[in-house]
Structure formats: structure tokens, C-alpha cells
């Protein structure tokens, strides 16, 4: 079911509790009573249409009215992406780390193996961190530059030069699969790790990994299907305006 602005916010959570993390990113707090999505968004100063697109894209992987999402300002999209970055690095990753740490401490039979997982995950964390830094330092500022240029009347040489140096299709190419290692880690636990004595913790960890993987997939989808096409389109527009070949 596609979520619309008149649905109760509470029902959105009932429908898919993973959407809690999205609400958190928009700064929307629980306790909305019977208020609709629209009413709740207004209270928290959130663009309702943007919220709807994001939450629907998150809940239904096949739902992607790209055109509509592409109409939103770049800043709105990158702000959201940046918030998901913070959510990964400040909440999810530390949560998973402490779960693994707890497993190491409480495990009597598999300490060495769990330590392997720990090392693997810390490698992953580094990778994720680099990935995020690159996006925030290089990609996001570039998208803003392109948008500004696109809406200004004059295209300066500076912008064109930067477009020559870096263009969004470079990002598209180098945008590696950051979920790959999570997938490996899940499979190692599910298929190959001899079950440690603390199974509850192990299941909790798996649950968290599945959650993070879904979230990161969704995140990459917004980048690849919304941000990249939008910028590509604008790059073309700028070249046209500057009288260059497209």
C-alpha cells in the first residue's frame, strides 16, 4: 500500500516498523496520536511530499516515481542522505560493534571465531567511513555546484572546468557496492560459523545486519536512481547553455 499524506502517521509505523529509522532521520518524534502524515510533517517542518517519496521508496522497493523525486532541490536530497550517513556511523555501526563485543565476552567456545567477525566488521566500518567521506567531501558539494550553475543565468568558466575534472558519471562508476561485505558477513554467520553458545545475541546481530543492509540498499537506490540522473540532466543543461556540445 502506497502511503499518502492523509494516512495516520501511526499506521505508517504499524505497516512497516523499519520506517522508524526514516522518521528519526527527519527528526520526527513519536507520540503523534492520530495525526496524519501531512499534519505531523508540518509540525516538524518537514516537506511532506519529500517525506512521502522517501518513505514509499523505502517501504516498496519497486515504487520509484523518479521524476517526482527529481523535482526536489538537490539540497533536500543530499541533506537526507547525509542524515542517513550519520545514522549509520553514529547509531547502527556502534550498535553492531557492541553486539559483537558482547558476543566475544560471553562466548566460551567460539572466542577466536567471533574475534574474526569483529575484525571483519571493523574493516567494513573503515570502508563505509571512506565511502561516506568521499560522498560528503566530493560528491555532495559537486551536486550543489551543478544545481546552482543550472539555475543561474551565466555559466562561469570555473564551473565548466570543474565539470571537466569531475562529473557525476565518475561517481556512478566508482560507486562501489558498499553492501557487499555485509552480505558476506551474514552468510558467514548463517552458513559457516559454528553456533556460539549465546544464540540470542547471534540472532540479534543477524537481525541488525539485515536491517543495516536494507537501509544501505535503499540509500544507494536514492543516490543511483534519483541524485545521479538529476545531476546528469543538469550537466547536460549547463553544457547546452554554455554553447558546448552535449
Amino acid at each position: 500500500m502506497v502511503i499518502t499524506k492523509d494516512i495516520k502517521m501511526a499506521d505508517v509505523i504499524h505497516m512497516n516498523h523499519f520506517s522508524l529509522s526514516i522518521l528519526e532521520r527527519f527528526g520526527i518524534e513519536l507520540g503523534f496520536g492520530d495525526k496524519s502524515v501531512d499534519e505531523t510533517c508540518k509540525i516538524y517542518n518537514v516537506d511532506t511530499d519529500f517525506f512521502l517519496e522517501i518513505i514509499n521508496a523505502f517501504i516498496h522497493t519497486e515504487y520509484f516515481p523518479k521524476k517526482q523525486l527529481q523535482n526536489f532541490p538537490v539540497k533536500l536530497i543530499t541533506d537526507y542522505l547525509q542524515k542517513t550517513h550519520n545514522y549509520y556511523m553514529q547509531i547502527k555501526v556502534p550498535e553492531i560493534e557492541s553486539l559483537i563485543e558482547e558476543m566475544v565476552l560471553s562466548c566460551s567456545t567460539q572466542k577466536e571465531n567471533i574475534n574474526l567477525l569483529k575484525r571483519f566488521f571493523s574493516e567494513y566500518k573503515e570502508e563505509l567511513k571512506n565511502h561516506i567521506q568521499r560522498e560528503e567531501k566530493v560528491v555532495f558539494p559537486y551536486t550543489q555546484l551543478i544545481e546552482n550553475a543550472f539555475y543561474s543565468d551565466k555559466i562561469d568558466k570555473q564551473t565548466l572546468r570543474q565539470m571537466d575534472e569531475y562529473s557525476i558519471d565518475i561517481f556512478e562508476k566508482e560507486h562501489d557496492n558498499i553492501e557487499e561485505k555485509l552480505y558476506d558477513l551474514k552468510n558467514i554467520i548463517i552458513k559457516y560459523l559454528p553456533q556460539p553458545n549465546n544464540k540470542t545475541l547471534c540472532n540479534k546481530l543477524l537481525h541488525e545486519l539485515f536491517g543495516l543492509e536494507k537501509d544501505i540498499n535503499d540509500h544507494s537506490r536514492i543516490e543511483d536512481k534519483v541524485l545521479v540522473p538529476k545531476i546528469l540532466e543538469m550537466e547536460k543543461g549547463i553544457r547546452k547553455k554554455a554553447g558546448l556540445k552535449v
Binding site: 571465531n113 574474526l116 571483519f120 561485505k181 552468510n187 558467514i188 559457516y192 560459523l193 559454528p194
Partner: peptide, 14 residues
């Protein structure tokens, strides 16, 4: 179902 080198390393050790 394992792609990365470090994932395969864990498999090899296990």
C-alpha cells in the same frame, strides 16, 4: 555466497 577477500579468509579459517 561470499564475495570479498576478507569474507573468504574467514571461511578458510573456519
Amino acid at each position: 555466497g561470499i564475495k570479498s577477500v576478507s569474507g573468504l579468509t574467514i571461511y578458510a579459517i573456519l
